[in-house]
């Protein structure tokens, strides 16, 4: 069964000086256990699509289903964990309390909360930082804590909106390889928005290339890379070939844009 299915999906933001078409005719099916990256220049609707899956935006046309339900039903069923561009940890809560936040809201018992917080913090290598406050941690650690928070209630779908965009490259590489391991271990379905080509190619089983005005899918690239990916896979010809395809796809989207300028 597909986890996410979009058919002729469109989303238009009304604006004073003419409507903004954020998404137009998007058709996409994401299967269970896939790691799908969305890449494209800003304004291509990749974040909007992710937010539509999360029921944070309402599509204006077409159909979108998550786990066979409407996005709203899926959200109410707590079908996904969402990682935002910023860590958005609540500064008045310690790291463990931040990770426990969704568990508190969803009504987990104290013992269960404690066990899950311990397990997910271990998963993102933050054991020992339970009692720290977010502002006492580095940006990379904060983002890891926010990933732990999204994982703590064990939803099968993980939506990640440029989670490492604000981090430096060394930290980003490190978190990328950790994310891959985590995906491998948990078997979750991951939708990952990025504007970095190497990041998209390195992480994904499938890369969705998007272009702006109106936001639409211009290419979907299946990755031929093996599941096991050490960091130096990025120097292999296979990797570079996929990266070149993605770059071509992005360029095609851009030339379309330039025709209209």
């Amino acid at each position: 069964m597909s986890v996410v299915q979009a058919m002729d999906l469109g989303l238009t933001f009304p604006a004073g000086d003419g409507d903004v078409v954020a998404l137009k005719d998007v058709n996409l099916t994401i299967g269970k256990g896939e790691f799908v990256s969305f890449i494209g220049p800003s304004g291509c609707g990749k974040t909007t699509f992710l937010r539509a899956i999360a029921d944070l935006e309402k599509p204006t046309s077409g159909t979108l289903s998550v786990n066979g339900q409407t996005p709203e039903e899926a959200r109410r069923a707590r079908a996904y964990g969402y990682v935002f561009q910023a860590a958005a940890l609540y500064p008045w809560r310690t790291i463990e309390k931040n990770v426990a936040l969704p568990l508190e809201i969803m009504g987990y018992g104290q013992a269960q909360q404690h066990e899950r917080v311990r397990a997910t913090l271990e998963l993102v290598n933050l054991t020992g930082f339970e009692k720290k406050y977010p502002w006492q941690l580095s940006g990379g650690m904060q983002q890891r804590a926010s990933i732990a928070r999204a994982l703590s209630f064990d939803a099968d779908l993980l939506l990640m909106d440029e989670p490492f965009g604000a981090l430096d490259e060394i930290v980003r590489d490190h978190l990328n390889s950790e994310l891959l391991k985590l995906w491998d271990r948990t078997g979750k379905t991951i939708c990952f928005v990025t504007h970095s080509i190497p990041e998209a190619v390195y992480l994904s089983t499938r890369i969705v290339v998007m272009s702006p005005r109106p936001g639409r899918v211009t290419d979907v690239i299946e990755s031929t890379l093996p599941r096991e990916r050490p960091l130096d896979i990025r120097e292999t010809p296979e990797f570079l070939e996929i990266a070149a395809r993605v770059r071509d796809g992005l360029r095609a989207g851009h030339s379309y844009e330039e025709e209209h300028v």
Partner: peptide, 25 residues
Amino acid sequence: SAIERDLMRTYAANYWQTLMKLRLP
């Protein structure tokens, strides 16, 4: 912030949970 509220929405938190755990603090 908008992200902090969206976060509550992704958990399907109700009004009082959002008030007590996010907006009042």
